[in-house]
Amino acid sequence: MTKPDLLIHTAFKLFYQQGIHAVGINAILAETGVAKKTLYHHFASKEALIEAVLIYRDQIFMDWLTARMMSAGDGKFAVLGLFDALDDWFHDRVDVLLPFKGCFFVKANGEFSDHMVNDICQRHKQNITSFIQANLVGHSSELSAVDLAQSISVLKEGAIAQAYVAGDLDAAKRAKNMAVTLLG
């Protein structure tokens, strides 16, 4: 693993577990054994590292989610596969995502206001909704696909929040049942 990759991966792990503002650069350096000069050679600031971490998590999450949804089939089967994927994540059966600690993007978004972090988090959520919508286009009219994708996204977000905040690790199963009703 390259030093920038090590720094990004370690920063993500610490940010996800403890929060972005709670983790200082020195904690990341102590965990990685990388010198401060090396970190600043690759990332001009903590903000630049945060941006790289958000992009990293987005890529990892989207690759995982896309693969899982596509393995369930196409159209509404892919969309329903989203909830099976979430169930595996909530139950810590997805090594690439680390043990479940809620949505990193919701948590990161909450730590900032009027910041590039908020833009990246919003784009991540929009990309997921767009991917869901793309899988629904053949299922119904374009307008219905837009509405359905937004509703499915609300179910997804609610399941994640319920699993994390309330400790309801079966929330994805209930959300899937609601999605089946929505999709008909």
Rank of each mutant, 00 (worst) to 15 (best):
Q17P: 02
L155V: 03
G81I: 04
G102V: 11
V180G: 04
T66R: 02
V96L: 10
M70G: 04
I28C: 01
Q150I: 11
D87G: 11
D168C: 07
F77R: 09
N135W: 00
N109G: 11
A67S: 12
A172W: 04
G167R: 04
Y164M: 12
S140E: 05
Q162V: 03
I120D: 01
Q17S: 14
L6C: 13
S144P: 03
V117K: 00
Y40W: 12
D170S: 12
F131K: 06
A175S: 05
F90Q: 03
A78Q: 01
K176W: 05
D92Q: 11
S141G: 15
I132Q: 00
F77N: 11
I152C: 06
H42R: 08
L29Y: 09
I60Q: 10
F100I: 09
K125S: 15
Q162W: 10
K176D: 11
K125W: 12
E157C: 08
A72G: 03
R93N: 08
A163I: 05
T66F: 03
A172V: 04
Y164G: 00
R57I: 04
D63W: 01
D95P: 05
A108C: 13
S130G: 12
M178P: 03
A11D: 06
F104P: 01
V23W: 00
G138M: 14
D88G: 11
A35P: 03
F43G: 02
T129M: 06
D119R: 15
H124D: 15
K76L: 05
A67W: 14
R57E: 10
F90S: 01
F12G: 01
E157Q: 13
L65E: 02
N177V: 02
L7K: 00
V53F: 09
Y16L: 05
A22M: 08
S71P: 05
A35V: 06
T32M: 04
F131P: 00
A172T: 06
V23N: 00
S144I: 09
R174M: 10
A171S: 13
L82A: 05
L29F: 10
S151V: 06
A72K: 01
N109R: 11
D168R: 15
L169T: 09
S151H: 11
L29W: 07
D170R: 13
D74T: 13
E142L: 07
I132K: 00
L29D: 08
N26V: 12
L97M: 14
M69K: 02
F105M: 03
A11V: 04
T2M: 08
L183V: 10
K176C: 01
A179Y: 04
L14T: 02
V165I: 15
W89C: 02
C121P: 14
S151W: 12
K76R: 11
L7N: 01
I132S: 00
L29I: 09
G138T: 13
N135P: 08
D88N: 12
D88L: 07
M116K: 10
